[in-house]
Design a protein around this nucleic acid. Structure first.
Lengths: 134, 134, 134, 134
DNA sequence: GTGGTCTAGACCACC
DNA sequence: GTGGTCTAGACCACG
């Protein structure tokens, strides 16, 4: 997976990287166990400060999305949510409300939003209905 | 409508207020024409500097969500998007992908997300399907 | 490009700066990608508070005229309007009527105005006739 | 001529009135010698404070656009510019540059602007080419 | 170094 | 009374 950063955006670079990794994992472009480019390599590729890359990786490790093996590199973790069902639901609701607020302010109809979500959801690697925990 | 802010959050206070107003308008808790608390009153209530309140109101006015009547106060505007259809769609897609990424990471299934959206959408004041422009 | 401000004017300083940047971009004195003086430097040069400079830059960024690179400075963006054609036309008509009213009150003839505009337009970087959208 | 004010706009009401009178005179909707509605009448019609109307009239009188005859009312003045040719030209250029800056930022082409001006100029009562003074 | 946020408090314009 | 502008100065985030 190719990473990129938009120095034009007002979103901090390290946040852009975090979002890309999270999105990559969510859409399956990054598979569990896959190795990510090293801090030094990626910092040269994107022409950004190594500290910036390191910060993104560190935060993702704290989140449980990545896992560092000393001397081997950074890998996509086998992800399992440690949150309770209620906590997960609260977080999803907050994200959903934020999205719906945006949709209303952009002038879309409920049907358009529903349809767009149905279309777009196919690109994401959702959990399978069976094994739900938490 | 009651406003609140969390000064311990890393999200700037003025941004918290902006989000609350936007959500209030999107869900109809704030109706077009309704008056918002004055800068000074709200600043006393939330124990934040008046400039911080003013900043939130000012940004919302530039967005077209609020409008100021000199000497009278700040009111909810009746909002119409001036953005092009393409621009609106791009913004919605970005918001949607962000939401879906979050949903996957929280371990929800596609069905759960679809159902939750269908449930929740009823609380929001979406545009009516008919006259769409832009 | 040199900036200046008139603290005796009734026009707010931050608005004077906004107008100067907008004019500079429109006439090509400020090129896309060019870096603007830092908030602190310009505030010392013009002997105004850094917050005032920051406000001008921030508003121009929201307009899409400038963009900030964290820790690097503020730069001229390559601008594309996100407004609908109708909205753009309305704004232009308002500005035109204001200009024509002024011209009549100053006692100019229609020919003089037309000629002056033809002369002056050459200094501005207008869009090229081809690809128009929005 | 009917006056109106938009309490939604962030332009002060007294400024809106000034602009309307100036535009009315420039387009011939208000003829020299014509009587304007009294301060009290207009303040009732527009539901604004009489002071606001009075302020607009006062400023227009200072500009030379209106003329008050004690006890009779306020009238459109026989307008003659007292400015020098150079001063008038400077003011027009400033207004023109402001308009052109706006046009560029709205993404219009030079041809569109030129054409729009040619169309629109017909609505305004420009001076006749012969008798130019100042 | 850069810009972003917030506070405290002053002064002004508008209604 | 309302909001708008500006200053002085502190502290934080980013690269």
């Amino acid at each position: 997976m190719k990473f990129q950063c938009d120095t034009t955006s007002r979103v901090p670079i390290y946040r852009q990287l975090i979002e890309q990794v999270r999105a990559g994992v969510a859409t399956g472009k990054l598979k569990p166990g896959e190795r990510l480019p090293s801090v030094r390599l990626l910092s040269r590729e994107l022409v950004v400060n190594p500290n910036t890359i390191a910060r993104a990786y560190t935060e993702l490790e704290r989140e449980g999305v990545l896992h560092t093996r000393q001397g081997l590199g950074v890998f996509v973790a086998q992800w399992t949510s440690e949150l309770t069902k209620q906590s997960r639901r609260e977080k999803l609701l907050a994200a959903l409300d934020h999205f719906l607020t945006e949709a209303v302010h952009l002038g879309f109809t409920a049907e358009e939003v529903q349809k767009l979500l149905a279309d777009r959801a196919g690109r994401f690697c959702f959990a399978v209905p069976a094994g739900e925990s938490g």
